[in-house]
Design a protein around this nucleic acid. Structure first.
Lengths: 195, 195
DNA sequence: CGCGGGTTTGATGATGCTCAAGCCCGGTGG
DNA sequence: CCACCGGGCTTGAGCATCATCAAACCCGCG
């Protein structure tokens, strides 16, 4: 059950067998069925979740009632609303499962405690945050410098697994365009490749 | 010279007088005149810079030759291309000064060493990264869910100091729109407030 | 077989881009 | 002190991209 997490950590920092339990003892496994929520808007995003199976997403709903997907998380990814998680404030996001999923949960006090008592885990999370920060920055750059079509092509190249795994309207939402627009973009790309 | 950094760190972690030098001894002050570069595309983004005075920006230039500003950094902010800094690969960004500025530089080996040898600094950077990750995420959400006008109003509310400090075309670039579009948006807002 | 969600297609409209010209203002040199 | 220059902001006209709304299509499933 913890194998995937173990592997994920080991790829980033050296970790002995004795150290791993200091992490796993603080984590609680949970099954989240398709369409079930991990957290909802207005709640405290109490847990940081590591996905061992399945696929979750976080999204907001704007004043017009439209969903906007902020993040996908498949096997080997962490997900939460970090702001709410760290501050204890109410989240503005929903996190739910797009497939039947299994996650490992750690709550904020345990997270802080783990970082404080075991420096190796503080390093692990620092490295994780570095990489997530870089990835999110790339997305900002894409959004201010690329057309919708170029952003889709970039996503297709960088995360083909995500694109073919989730519904097209979810990809559209993630890119900040309508399902109709994405459909036309794909159509254009297909035509272009044939000619 | 190091006062502002000292204060910045103290706001995030408890730090004694004896510990501070382990950081400052690794940092090199540098003056960067208006329009001078800290790094240019194709170089290794060798330093992580803490701004003690002035204002820097990072930006890309796309195939069409258009600039796209990724980040501003005024007093109390850190700036670099984190990907290049950590990986040693060539950066795709330019970082230059919008005003005569003073920065404190730390190179990647020193950064890694500082994190490894003084856990408190690893914690400081983890916290910094958490906050930057949250802020960048907010920007992604804005870009996929808000109109250009709404994004401008959000920026105006969250960073009024930046908006009135840098040229309008730079704000436009940061928002991913043209200077003309921003001009019209401001016009519309001004009219709206009068009526 | 028929229902229903998801995707596609079409027509129309809004938002922001492009190109071009004009305006404002601070700095420079005569 | 004034004329001129230049950069940055504004304004205008036409255009491209993407949104909206509506209808059709596709396909898996009850």
């Amino acid at each position: 059950m913890f194998d995937r997490l173990r592997e994920h950590i080991r790829q980033r920092i050296p970790l002995t067998d004795e150290e791993f339990p200091s992490c796993t003892s603080l984590m609680v496994p949970k099954r989240i069925r398709k369409d079930a929520y991990l957290v909802q808007e207005g709640e405290h995003s109490k847990y940081l979740a590591f996905v061992t199976k399945g696929c979750l997403r976080s999204y907001t709903i704007d004043k017009k009632g439209e969903e906007h997907i902020v993040q996908f998380a498949v096997e080997g990814w962490w997900i939460t609303d970090l702001y709410s998680f760290l501050s204890g404030k109410e989240t503005e996001y929903f996190i739910d499962a797009l497939e039947d999923s299994d996650v490992l949960l750690i709550d904020a006090p345990s997270y802080e405690k783990l970082c404080e008592t075991v420096p190796k885990f503080e390093r692990y999370f620092r490295i994780l945050l570095q990489n997530n920060y870089i990835a999110t920055h790339r997305r900002v750059v894409a959004s201010i410098s690329l057309s919708a079509e170029e952003q889709y092509l970039q996503l297709l190249q960088e995360s083909p697994a995500i694109v073919q795994r989730v519904a097209q309207r979810h990809i559209a939402s993630y890119l900040g365009i309508t399902p109709e627009a994405l459909s036309r973009i794909r159509n254009r790309i297909a035509k272009h490749q044939r000619s």
